[in-house]
Structures are given as C-alpha cells and as structure tokens.
Computed example of a mutant assay.
Amino acid sequence: MESITKNRQSLATLRAMVARAYGPDQVPSGTTEWVHELGHGWFNVAYRLRLRDGYQAVLKVAPPAGVEVMTYERRAMATELAALALLAQTSVPVPRVDFADTSRDLVYADWFVMRYVDADNYGVIRSSLSPCEQEQLDVEVGAATRSLNALTGSAFGPLGGPGVPTWRQCFLGLLEDVLHDGERRAVDLDYAGIRARAKTHAHHLDEVTTPHFVEWDLWPSNVLIRDGRIVCLIDHERAFYGDPLIEAGFVATQLPAFGNPTAFLRGYGRPPLTEPERTRRRLYNLYLTTTMVVEAVYRGRTDPDRNAWARARYTEALAAL
C-alpha cells in the first residue's frame, strides 16, 4: 500500500543497517536480489532481507521526521517494540526482534529488524479460501485476541505510559486527539455531533475498570498463516491498555459492512453483548471510522473507492449513536 509515511532507504543505507544489526560479515554481496519491499502495510516501510548466510529478516523503518503523522502514531515504533517485548513472554506467536536502533545516525528515524516468518498473509489470501477454512481461521483469531487481552496493566493508555486511572478519561482523550488531528487538516467531519454523542454515552465507559492489553489493529492482514493455522501476528504499533471490546474483531457486531463476527466471537468465547456493551462498541466504531477518514488525509491516500467506503462507514457509525 502506498503512503507518504513510508521512509524508503537507498541500498547503501540498507547495507549499513544490516552491518550494524548483524555484523559486516552478513552484508549481502549481490545487487538487489537480497532486498524486497513488503507492500501490505500502510504506515512503516518494511523490507524483507536475505543476509549473506541465508538468514531472512524484516526491517521496519519509522516515517521520516518531516512527515506529519496523527497524534496516536507519533511513537508507533516504540509502541510496537514494547508490545513485542510483552508478547514474547506469552504463547501468542509474534516475530522475534533481533535488533533495534533509536540513535538516528544511519537514518533520521527509528528502525528495527526481526526474524522473517515464512507464511501467507491471511488478509491477502482470505478470498481464495473456502468458507469453512475462513471460519476456522476466524475462530483462531478470536482465541488469539482473547489471549492478548489476558495481559493487564496498571493504568489505561500507552504501553510505555504515562497512563490514566479511568477508561473514560483514556478513550475520550484518544477520540479528542483524532478530532484535533482532523481539525488541524480541515477534514470534513461533524465535530460537534461526534463530541455530543461521546458526551451523551460516556458513562457506559465507566463499566471498564481493568486495563487490558488491546491490539486494536488485529485485522486479517496482520495475521500470518501456514497450513491452515495461525503462525504469527504482526504490526503491533497501535496497541495500548484499554477495553477488550475495542478490538477489531468486535467491529462487525455493530457495523455489518465489516463482515460476519460469529466465528470470531465463538473463538473468543464471548457471550452476546449487553445493551451497554453495544453502546460502547458503537462509540468505538465511531472512533475507528473517524480515524479512517482522517488518516486518509495524513497518508496522502487518493484511492476514491477506499476513501468513499471509509466515509460511508463513518456516516453509519455516527447515525448508530
């Protein structure tokens, strides 16, 4: 996917990064056959590397310093590294981080390398799978999401802190950040309507009292599969401590355009949502779809069909509240 946030590097710089991470003896001797850009992500640029001894790695580079990003994205790479460190202590399959560099001397941006996982991207091949295969994998995604959510923190908000004591304060802050981002770039949204709906229904957020690890971005495109099973979860830069009900798998319970959530809910082991939970999920859908509309401007996304789809979902989410 194309985005102005992708911080592409020259071959000379990529060789220098390999030397720093793995040593000069691992720098490939070929021309370009050892490096391949992975194009599925929207935010960071990612390269698949083959080192001199055949070891394969993925290099991720944060956006260039001069590119304006949304408020919640400003420490995205630090968040991903914190998430990977947390999840490495669990049974959830995530990539192993080999090296991280925040010195910004080779590249004026943070970057890290991790072990490459040889598997298919579920989001890419999902349409080619049978309904039965899709259902089985959606059940697995539900179970994996529940495992992630089992981790808890001491406060709501960023993994690295500082957090806040209540979920209401945290969520309303997240929403306000996105609204400020939209206002800063003059994105056409019903700002007064969004704020009014959030204020009206905010008391339902007080039901959430424990800060759980939430991935927030666990869509099929961030799931790697092999032989019909999940082997790795990727792209953890949007994780934080919050309400598990904000996870991507629950979106379709209130916005049918996102698919059928039945298999995910079965894998998660979740009973039907209560009325207050449905209201919370509608708030989260409004936050998600508002973010989708605003981020299109920050990413320089010009695909008219994708942008129209996002705006239609935002309109639905606003009306649902």
Results as ranks from 00 to 15, higher is better:
Phe43Ser: 07
Trp167Tyr: 14
Leu11Lys: 05
Arg184Thr: 11
Leu14Ile: 15
Pro63Lys: 05
Val124Asp: 11
Ala143Tyr: 07
Asp243Arg: 02
Tyr22Val: 10
Leu233Gly: 10
Gln134Glu: 03
Arg229Thr: 13
Phe112Ile: 03
Pro261His: 03
Gln136Ile: 09
Ala317Tyr: 08
Trp34Ile: 05
Glu80Arg: 00
Trp167Arg: 05
Leu179Asp: 06
Ala150Arg: 09
Ser127Val: 09
Lys60Cys: 11
Gln26Ile: 02
Ala19Gln: 08
Asp105Pro: 01
Pro261Met: 04
Arg184Phe: 08
Leu179Cys: 13
Ala100His: 09
Gly30Met: 06
Asn121Gly: 06
Thr274Trp: 03
Cys132His: 10
Thr274Asn: 00
Asp105Asn: 13
Gly249Gln: 05
Thr32Ile: 12
Glu73Val: 05
Val27Lys: 05
Tyr314His: 13
Ala144Met: 15
Met1Leu: 13
Ser91Leu: 10
Thr90Pro: 07
Arg52Glu: 13
Glu133Val: 01
Met292Cys: 15
Leu224Tyr: 04
Gln89Met: 09
Val141Pro: 00
Arg301Val: 12
Thr279Ala: 12
Tyr287Cys: 08
Val164Ser: 09
Leu286Phe: 07
Asp190Gly: 11
Ser154Ile: 02
Thr90Cys: 02
Val187Trp: 07
Ser147Leu: 14
Ala248Glu: 02
Ala252Ile: 11
Val297His: 07
Ala21Cys: 10
Phe258Met: 14
Tyr116Cys: 10
Tyr191Pro: 00
Leu87Phe: 06
Thr31Arg: 12
Pro256Trp: 03
Cys232Gln: 02
Gly163Cys: 06
Ala19Ile: 07
Val187Lys: 03
Val107Trp: 12
Met70Arg: 01
Ala248Thr: 10
Asn307Met: 11
Ala144Ser: 13
Ala100Asn: 04
Arg126Ala: 15
Leu129Phe: 02
Asp177Met: 12
Arg20Asn: 13
Val97Ala: 05
Arg278Met: 14
Ala76Met: 14
Pro244Asp: 02
Gly23Trp: 01
Arg311His: 15
Gly242Asp: 01
Gln56Tyr: 04
Val92Tyr: 05
Thr315Gly: 08
Ala21Asp: 01
Leu87His: 04
Val208Asp: 00
Glu133Pro: 02
Ala78Asp: 15
Val208Arg: 00
His40Ala: 14
Leu148Ser: 01
Thr315Phe: 06
Val61Arg: 00
Leu151Trp: 01
Asp217Gly: 03
Asp98Thr: 09
His40Cys: 11
Phe240Lys: 00
Gly153Pro: 02
Gln89Glu: 14
Glu215Asp: 15
Pro304Lys: 00
Met17Val: 15
Leu288Lys: 04
Phe99Pro: 02
Asp25His: 08
Arg226Val: 06
Ser147Glu: 13
Gln89Leu: 13
Glu247Ile: 14
Ala144Phe: 09
Arg301Met: 12
Arg168Thr: 13
Arg8Ser: 11
Gly173Asp: 10
Leu87Met: 12
Ala320His: 04
Ser103Asn: 11
Arg96Asn: 05
Arg146Gly: 13
Gln56Ala: 06
Asn260Trp: 06
Lys60Ser: 11
Leu205Ile: 02
Asp303Arg: 01
Ala119Asn: 06
Thr209Ile: 08
Arg195Cys: 06
Val141Glu: 06
Glu207Trp: 03
Gly161Val: 04
Val187Pro: 06
Ala57Arg: 03
Leu283Asn: 04
Tyr268Val: 08
Asp235Ile: 04
Val141Ala: 12
Ala319Pro: 05
Glu37Ile: 12
Glu2Tyr: 08
Gly259Pro: 07
Leu106Ile: 12
Ala155Cys: 00
